[in-house]
Design a protein around this nucleic acid. Sequence first.
DNA 1: AATATCAATGCAATGGAAGTGCAATTACTG
DNA 2: CAGTAATTGCACTTCCATTGCATTGATATT
Lengths: 138, 138
Amino acid sequence: MQKIEKLLESKNIRVTAMRLLIYKFLAEKQIAVTLSDIENAFEKADRTTLYRTVKTFEEKDIVHQIDDGTGITKYALCENGCNCEIERDLHLHFHCNNCNETVCLTEHKIPQIKVPDGFVSENVNLVVKGICDKCSGQ
Amino acid sequence: MQKIEKLLESKNIRVTAMRLLIYKFLAEKQIAVTLSDIENAFEKADRTTLYRTVKTFEEKDIVHQIDDGTGITKYALCENGCNCEIERDLHLHFHCNNCNETVCLTEHKIPQIKVPDGFVSENVNLVVKGICDKCSGQ
DNA sequence: AATATCAATGCAATGGAAGTGCAATTACTG
DNA sequence: CAGTAATTGCACTTCCATTGCATTGATATT
């Protein structure tokens, strides 16, 4: 618990009750969550606060944004080998068409993508869609 | 010009002036366009009509949708080796962070993506971001 | 401990994109 | 040419993202 406070301090953002709660919520979830998910979990809090908290986390590389093609932005903690700061580009996400959940497959590296001459690759967003392990009955 | 009519007929959708114009517009553009782009090009026409026309094209595999991470859905014609019908999944798109344009790199194949056991991959969306050939001064 | 300062929060409102219902119009069929 | 079905235009709604401003809360200084 102290660990979260240390983390926030190391990122130079103030430690508040709200931020601790939201961080904990994200940490408990193993999947990427939408703002609505967070809203539902903290009905007492204001949407804007949650929004700005997540945005702050994003700026400070505490969470990263995921665009899984559902049209709704999702967020997930930058840990478990995510290494946003170092290789902030190689995001591999899996979106389940059945349960609609999106998970980060951080342990699976993205193969090198070749682009034509004249193009400069700075960043890769890769979303694989299909059926996740839970839904495939496995 | 007759070619477009033939195409529409072969897809079993009616040939209308609107559809011919929108198709021509998409064909002229070498990049993926948003609904707003189309709106700006056809200011006399109604948003809804344009929206539904594109949706119809999408259903009939005349255009495909692109989610390049800008949060706004883009569309591009399914030609030049796109082969939506056959391998409707292997979309490689390049989004330029400078000019904000998105192009289809259909000639560049996506390498095989491995997913963990229990996950079933049905579909892959890959967007590479960076600087395009026009903007790199090349 | 009181206060000044700046950040964080809550409320209200806005904007943009996506989507729907319905009436009017247009295209095809016989 | 009439009838049917699809297409178009208008109005409206919904949902998510975002901003302005006043208020509350936290940190630093005295």
